[in-house]
């Protein structure tokens, strides 16, 4: 307890160190509702903490043995029914208050706001070992980095392919997490209140590279987002987009290394297979030995983007 306090104080005082005492600064109404609930609960938590630890320390000090004999009796009190009632009813009231507050905040956290004049947006989020894939309504595909407009409700349809494992989508500033579960479709949402890049990562153990399954959301102005989305669609149709590089970095490099130098999976830099589009497609779609089928279900544009990228800029190996 003493050290809890000490580390708390150090946390607040130490330069450069941060002490995160509540969920991160929200950038979406749902994250704000959660943070408000957290702070509300904290009022009671801090009060009870001070009460209990305070009584404990006071009793330890006041009733220490001092000059009494080792085995002298303390007061032979066996209990008090009224006190039992008080410390049963007290917590019930506190918990009722907390539950009530949660239910009041809940609609603002759970319900997607109605689409405003600028409409809304639905993005399909698929968790896979070990990357996030996003599909926009116009067919644009992105990996790991999501772009979204500010001030527009964004509905996320979150799932994982049948042959994959469970992941959990979580960008702390944009709300709570929701699991991406094979065979199940979940929904969540955010409405970014400001532009910027918000980071998060997979929150459900999903295998060896779980720790590398990062996600970020880049919030753009509405106009910038609309322009990006359109440009991206044209590029992906024409096969000139950066999707190939995104796939290499998000999907292949997590295990094989950014330059193909090897990581938890073997070195692939210099492998002739990388120059053979059909062989790459076969491995990516079907997996091989311990490698999962990371590209099962990919569109032909995705495959092409990757194979073109590999031919144009083969991994250097260092």
């Amino acid at each position: 307890m003493v050290f809890a306090v000490v580390s708390l104080v150090t946390a607040l005082a130490a330069p450069g160190a941060f002490a995160q005492l509540a969920p991160v600064e929200p950038a979406s109404p749902n994250a704000e509702g959660i943070r408000d609930s957290y702070l509300f609960v904290s009022i009671f938590v801090v009060a009870i903490f001070v009460l209990v630890e305070g009584l404990l320390i006071a009793f330890i000090w006041k009733y220490r043995r001092q000059k009494r004999a080792r085995f002298d009796d303390g007061a032979q009190v066996h209990g008090a029914t009224n006190l039992e009632l008080v410390w049963t009813a007290g917590p019930v009231l506190v918990l009722a208050a907390i539950a009530a507050f949660v239910f009041v905040e809940l609609p603002g956290i759970k319900n997607v706001p109605a689409a405003g004049a600028s409409g809304d947006l639905e993005i399909r989020v698929t968790g896979r070992q070990f990357y996030w894939q996003y599909e926009y309504p116009n067919g644009v595909i992105a990996v790991d980095r999501m772009r979204a407009p500010a001030g527009v409700p964004v509905r996320l349809v979150v799932t994982a392919p049948d042959e994959d494992v469970i992941h959990s989508w979580w960008i702390p500033a944009l709300g709570g997490k929701i699991d991406a579960i094979p065979g199940r479709v979940n929904e969540t949402w955010f409405e970014a209140s400001r532009e910027g890049v918000f980071r998060g990562q997979c929150a459900e153990l999903c295998g060896a590279e779980h720790a590398r399954m990062l996600a970020e959301v880049e919030v753009l102005s509405r106009a910038a987002f609309a322009a990006w989305l359109e440009e991206r669609r044209d590029e992906q149709t024409a096969g000139t987009s950066e999707l190939g590089q995104e796939l290499w970095e998000g999907v292949c490099a997590k295990c094989h290394g950014l330059a193909g130098e090897g990581g938890i999976a073997r070195r692939i830099a210099g492998s002739t297979i990388l120059q053979d589009p059909e062989a790459v497609e076969d491995i990516v779609r079907n997996g091989r030995r311990t490698m999962p089928a990371v590209g099962a279900g990919w569109t032909s544009e995705q495959i092409e983007a990757l194979t073109t990228y590999l031919q144009e800029s083969p991994p250097s190996g260092n």
Binding site: I60, R65, G74, A80, L83
Partner: peptide, 12 residues
């Protein structure tokens, strides 16, 4: 709370 009350007026 009962444990705390057990300390109360004890010879600790």
């Amino acid at each position: 709370f009962n444990w705390l009350a057990t300390l109360w007026r004890g010879n600790l």
